[in-house]
Design a protein around this nucleic acid. Structure first.
Lengths: 230, 230
DNA sequence: GTCTATACGTCGATAGAC
DNA sequence: GTCTATCGACGTATAGAC
């Protein structure tokens, strides 16, 4: 056994490095969240992962590349989870929005690093225009999922023309983000129910606005909907 | 003239220092916004203000104290302006909310440092619990002003019991903050009208929710309102 | 009250051993 | 592929001249 050829002991060669990368990225997430990008040293990150500085530079070009790769993979992971949940809702679309918001609040409370990292990513992007485009692009997938969910809700009501899925999705996302942030400063001021209440009021308001204007010029709607299920 | 006693040339002694402090704080705001707290050096700040490192340390204990004082004075200034505008509205409370949101969007677009600094303050506060309390305290004044404005709007409609001024003010603040942030990443996705639209829908939704429940148990209200004006 | 010079530490990144 | 040792640059904060 011990004299076996080193060609593939277990599949160690490539996998060991992948494992190191993963551990380094997790340590980076923790460290960047706690100390910020500029406030975190590569030594700190490497130590938190149980490796040395050399191992870090063997896996990432430099500190900035590590940070940018984290901003990609970290969000990609969350988005994968969230998108599944968002699109897997068969129940009332309106109720689904409520449930989703509940799930997101839970996640935000448990994963205390999340909002900190998002703030770091946002700051970095705003300060580095070329990264800003990347971030806008990455946000497109989860945003599309949210738009789809919101769109389904809007179809159940006589929404006004201004209440496009895109516009309402933007409002919902902003609302959520803002409330999570406020909640970190003063949890008592932002109880869990507030998320659901805000969404209910928002959609109720959209509905009555649509009703007041009667049927608000639905001419642009494509008639070819529900390609399945019929 | 030149041999005159130096007791008070103009009132220079105290005022010169105050002027230096002010210039340093302005330079600090700019630098912290552009580079972040940890990413900014005291030398950079001092240079931007046209002074030396020594002058900075002569006016502030250290980098952290400069940052914390900035977080106080900077917000105090904005709050003073905003509060005036918020409480000076004699028009329709509902319309006033719209106008205020318009003003705030304008301010956010012009003062590009604002949201960056707010993000820095928020991150610093979340990472330093003792500072978090200070921040929560400082936010009380502007929050009270917003609550008052929101409260006036709510009095004009049959709002449900859950729609307290405090709760709705929290939602409005979160909405605004979230939209401003989104707008920095992708301005096209967050047009100016979206702020007003979101607020109209929100308040419309609150109104119909209150109407559906008829008069929603206003038992908790203290009868001793309007101590003046009667 | 402000400036110049400097002490002292830390950080990012590299080179070479294993 | 990872670790240890180290270099050069930069950062905070202080001391003393003016």
């Amino acid at each position: 056994m011990t004299t076996e050829e080193p060609r593939r002991q277990r599949l160690t060669r490539a996998e060991a490095k992948a494992r190191t990368r993963k551990l380094l990225l997790e340590a980076a997430a923790q460290t960047f969240a706690r100390k910020g990008y500029a406030g975190s040293s590569v030594e700190e990150i490497a130590e938190a992962a149980g490796f040395s500085i050399g191992a870090l530079y063997s896996n990432f070009g430099n500190k900035e590349e590590l940070f940018l790769e984290l901003s990609t993979t970290y969000n990609a992971d969350r988005i994968a989870e969230a998108s599944e949940v968002l699109l897997d809702q068969d129940a009332d679309p309106v109720q689904a929005v409520n449930e989703v918001s509940r799930l997101l609040v839970d996640a935000a409370d448990k994963d205390t690093d999340f909002s900190l990292l998002q703030a770091e990513f946002w700051l970095y992007a705003v300060r580095n225009p070329q990264v800003l485009d990347q971030m806008a692009t990455r946000m497109r997938t989860p945003r599309a999922a949210l738009e789809q969910l919101v769109g389904k809700s809007l179809e159940t009501m006589p929404a006004p023309a201004e209440a496009t899925p895109k516009a309402v999705a933007t409002i919902v996302a902003a609302l959520f983000e803002g409330l999570v942030r406020q909640r970190r400063i003063d949890p008592d001021q932002v109880p869990e129910e507030l998320f659901g209440a805000a969404l209910r009021w928002l959609f109720s308001g959209i509905e009555v606005s649509g009703r007041e204007k009667k049927v608000a010029a639905p001419a642009k709607r494509k008639p070819a909907k529900r390609p399945r299920q019929g």
